[in-house]
Design a protein around this nucleic acid. Structure first.
Lengths: 195, 195
DNA sequence: TGCGACTCACTTACTAGTAGGTAAGTGCGA
DNA sequence: TCGCACTTACCTACTAGTAAGTGAGTCGCA
């Protein structure tokens, strides 16, 4: 009867940092904040992540990996393009319910203040989301489920931007209800069902 | 021949702060940054804006006032709803060209770290934008230019979110070209032309 | 089996630099 | 001479980051 593996200190630090970064931004928390929460010293955090930029890079790497896994799972489902897009939007809604934003969304706002590696990771996150969405809408059109003109990639960009923006705005103004309303219109507008 | 009125120090401070806030966020610049640029001391800035929260409140007040004036000007034009929405999107594109974000968009990302007054001002900005957009699409539908089901207010929210998100994402990933592509799809999707 | 060498994870105590903010004083124009 | 706009000189709090040390555990080896 093995007990569940205790989370390592490094993981606990990443968990606390992720929560704070998604709420307050990368510049909105300090090593001291995390140290207080975990009842360790700031030197402990420096032991695991020697500079804050390293913590940020590890944070983005883990977040992007998990997000990609979630997209792979949704992409593997035997369901319509509309249902896959709905599941995609649900990922966003789930973080909003916790009062957070998409990590890469909030870090995009701080983009100009972030180290080069983190910038590249944010760009890569958007690119991979766009690619996943483009594939979904392209296949949906090929199957005759969706109907639109132009490039799937542009549709994908519109969906990504619409949902990131809805998260950003709805956290401050409107809440989950208005997020859903906006998300529905964005999805139906960018990837309309075939007549 | 009166020479143009010299900008007051308070205005110069607001100008510098606005530029920085739209690029780096409200927590992304310091009094020292502005003081360096204007060749004054930080005490000078404290003389005009005793606390940073006062500077932030004045910044938001001026920004919102100017934005409302721009919307009033566009709203007064004798043109189609689509043209007014296009002009609205152009306001966003113009700030992106300068490498900035909408002030309230970037501050929405920092929302949880901002003082109460600034939060209220951000919410009011979104509400007034939504109201303006809702009126444009409602009138457009009444005139038979636009065709959509449901509440104009939801259409307005989708447009606002789509453009704020497009600004956020496109500054880091894609640039002005991708912004235009996304904005076009968002507008056409949320406020479709009548058949 | 026992012991020295070593590593891991962490703490204590500190640094330099920067943040916002303040009190007192100065120069200059009306 | 009054007071506006500003400077000088300072403060406290906090930032990321570092050097040195500690106790517990592990490894190789006689």
């Amino acid at each position: 009867m093995a007990s569940p593996p205790a989370a390592s200190t490094a993981d606990l630090i990443l968990d606390a940092a992720e929560r704070r970064a998604q709420s307050f931004g990368f510049n909105g928390f300090s090593y001291a904040d995390i140290a207080d929460e975990l009842k360790v010293t700031t030197a402990t955090i420096h032991y695991h992540f020697s500079a804050k930029s390293d913590l940020g890079a590890d944070l983005l790497q883990r977040y992007s990996r998990r997000f990609a896994e979630a997209l792979a799972e949704i992409g593997g489902r035997e369901c319509s393009a509309a249902a896959q897009l709905g599941a995609y939007a649900q990922l966003y809604e789930d973080v909003l319910r916790e009062g957070r934003l998409c990590l890469c969304g909030i870090l995009a706002a701080e983009y100009e203040t972030l180290p080069a590696q983190m910038r590249e990771q944010i760009v890569a996150f958007f690119a991979s989301n766009e690619a996943w969405l483009a594939k979904v809408v392209r296949v949906g059109r090929e199957r005759g489920e969706l109907q639109f003109a132009g490039e799937p990639r542009d549709r994908a960009m519109a969906i990504l931007c619409g949902l990131e923006g809805a998260l950003l705005v709805a956290r401050a103004y409107g809440g989950v209800e208005r997020f859903r309303a906006a998300a529905e219109i964005v999805l139906a507008g960018a990837a309309p069902a075939a007549a």
